[in-house]
Design a protein around this nucleic acid. Structure first.
Lengths: 245, 245
DNA sequence: GAGTGGTCTAGACCACGAG
DNA sequence: TCGTGGTCTAGACCACTCA
């Protein structure tokens, strides 16, 4: 026996991928589906959570469960020259930014390699694609590196405008390290991204350093796991190519 | 009110981070903790799932819930020269490899950019750190690119030995693309990695291409989200450095 | 066999969204 | 107000581990 919700998830997935339920369509109520599969509602909801985590389903509290349209996919990439770095039409993607002063503490100290109490500026980027929240990013820049009262509005959702402004100010990034983890969202993140607390998020911790290894900026990105991916392109190192020759 | 399990998770987390419960220690039974917090067992288990997803807790069926030792962390990186590319002492990390013939179908076709039925070799890497499963990787190499009856044993858990053998055979990788997503494990993955089906995994889809853009090999990595991270280091492009000068 | 975690039941009650 | 999904209860029963 065991894991009935997995079998139910398989059955429901088949109905979606086979086209029996088409994108945008509302599924029967959870109570009806539970009765149909002869299970209790918690068990059926467990099956729905699986599909929601796969991005096949969109749950709307008080409204219903809907088959997701397969297009909208969030792609974060390390390639600044890539055409999809700014992922979609600016008309559709709305980016809101706010700036506020902070002092380094806890994780930010090790992330930025500064001592406690160091003055920072925190930039919070929250982007929306239509009605749906899209990404959440927090960018931190030490005051002794630079200060911008307010970044450009409506640009990259990942804080690329900060990088551009740093470059314009003569502060050159020579290396970027991106640390990626998979985890459940904090309750705040789930709230702002309107996510189910059970669906995973892709968390990216990005630090930019100059030629001396000094940290210029750090960013914490949170992307919904059910519709996001991060793509990293690496060119072969010269040393490797020549080492074999 | 709402979300009691989050408050319970916060309370339990405090006990761990404050040192009231030390690494390796077994927590009271779930029924006891449920009675202590005056909630039902499913609610308490929900709180424990949160902590397990954060890597603070290790659940052992039939035995108990244990505070995790904070050291063992899995780091996957794109930097082949990094010292932690082979993450730990080979003595501790055991890597098992098996090879078997396959034919391209479904996702593998687009991943390897070959037509249906193309002969491939599948190499399955399963690594253990002590008793605990560590990583699962499946590497695919088209037969028309190369064929190795069996990769080296006890080497990298990510299939780096395949890359090395390709290089030795004169097949040069010039670019690597790694696509990272956060999702729940399939039931097979949860089984082999001995994971809770609710904890997220970090999935890495890696393709290596040569100078002509031909796909040389593709790999599917699955890492437990509660103790894994992927680190990507990007050097600034020459074009960017020179463009500003 | 005793004790543990894993899954499931059959509801109850609350929060949300639309008319 | 009504129907929907979200959370929780107070158990039951099964699977696993170890003495």
């Amino acid at each position: 026996m065991a894991v009935r919700y997995q079998h139910i998830a398989d059955d429901l997935r088949r109905r979606i991928t086979s086209g029996a339920w088409i994108p945008g369509e509302r599924l029967p109520a959870e109570s009806a589906l539970a009765a149909l599969h002869k299970v209790s509602t918690p068990t059926l909801r467990n099956a729905l959570d699986v599909l929601a985590g796969e991005g096949l389903l969109e749950k709307r509290h008080g409204v219903g469960n809907f088959v997701r349209h397969p297009f909208q996919r969030i792609t974060y990439t390390n390639d600044r020259r890539a055409p999809d770095r700014r992922p979609l039409d600016d008309a559709e993607l709305q980016v809101n930014v706010s700036a506020s002063p902070r002092e380094a503490r806890g994780d930010l100290m090790s992330l930025l390699q500064v001592v406690a109490g160091t003055p920072l500026t925190e930039y919070v980027y929250l982007s929306h694609l239509g009605d749906a929240p899209y990404s959440l990013a927090r960018v931190y820049v030490p005051r002794h590196v630079a200060y911008f009262s307010m970044p450009d509005q409506g640009r990259s959702p990942w804080g690329d405008d900060i990088e551009d402004r740093l470059a314009a100010a003569g502060v050159r990034t020579v290396a970027t390290v991106e640390r990626v983890t998979a985890r459940r969202p904090t309750s705040e993140e789930a709230d702002t991204l309107r996510l189910n607390a059970r669906t995973a998020v892709l968390a990216v911790e990005r630090t930019s350093t100059d030629a001396k290894g000094r940290v210029l900026a750090a960013a914490l990105l949170v992307l919904p796991g059910d519709r996001a991916e991060a793509v990293f392109t690496t060119q072969a190192f010269d040393a490797e190519q020549e080492g074999v020759r």
